[in-house]
């Protein structure tokens, strides 16, 4: 396999990690959705490159799903939701951007340190992809714990799922069942969340999870 192929794959996976970092510090909801769209596009490019390199046509389907579903439908409906809820101008208070970024860097380093030796026997392309994928998963988790707003938490969760798809695409010849099921589960998960958002709206008049905390009152 020639070096250029590997390099392109790494550039794309690395770009996905960088986009995850951008998600970490973006404090406007509409900006967050834009970056998530970028995230999905980079993911689909990366998966498409894997499809080309592994000569696995079914991965093009996964890439197509990523573009249509995640880069078009989900951002579109999210935008509608935040407009309906009139929170599209909301600037979220993200406490300690510097600290969050440092933790993010630490998590990325951690995933490289853990995954690269563990996957020494796998081929070089897959092993760096999986290390990057773990970094994206961890950054998604980090975003979910640092945000209070339900919409940002969902975006954090979806970026995490993108990391999983990158990992699944990197694993040679992993049966299609899994990839499609991942896409479907995102769809289901999204519907579930959508229902929740509207119900939360009914009850609280906004989707800030601080409100949920208030409801909890003294209970632990």
């Amino acid at each position: 396999m020639d070096l250029l192929t590997i390099d392109i794959a790494h550039v794309l996976a690395g770009a996905l990690v960088l986009t995850s970092f951008m998600l970490l510090y973006q404090d406007r909801l509409s900006g967050l959705i834009n970056i998530y769209t970028l995230h999905a596009v980079v993911l689909s490019l990366s998966v498409a490159w894997q499809a080309y390199y592994q000569d696995a046509p079914h991965l093009y389907v996964t890439a197509g799903i990523a573009v249509i579903f995640k880069a078009v439908i989900i951002p579109f409906s999210l935008r509608r939701i935040i407009e309906r809820l009139r929170i599209h101008r909301t600037v979220e208070v993200v406490g300690g951007v510097g600290v969050t970024m440092l933790i993010g860097i630490f998590l990325t380093a951690l995933s490289l340190v853990v995954m690269l030796p563990a996957t020494a026997s796998a081929d070089p392309l897959a092993r760096e992809d999986i290390a990057f994928a773990l970094a994206i998963v961890l950054l998604g988790l980090l975003m979910m714990v640092t945000r209070r707003n339900a919409v940002s938490q969902i975006i954090g969760f979806m970026s995490l799922e993108n990391g999983l798809i990158l990992a699944a695409a990197g694993a040679h010849g992993m049966p299609l069942v899994v990839e499609i099921s991942v896409a479907f589960s995102i769809l289901i998960a999204f519907i579930v969340i959508g229902i929740f958002l509207f119900r939360i709206r009914e009850r609280f008049d906004n989707v800030d999870l601080f409100e949920l905390d208030r409801v909890r009152g003294g209970r632990s």
């Binding site: 998963v137 969760f157 999983l164 990992a167």
Partner: peptide, 22 residues
């Protein structure tokens, strides 16, 4: 209270399930 419980369950359950997929 029920919505809060379901939301918490959903988020923690999804994170668990995502780690399991990895």
């Amino acid at each position: 209270h029920a919505l809060e419980a379901a939301w918490k369950y959903f988020i923690l359950g999804s994170v668990g399930i995502a780690l399991a997929l990895f």
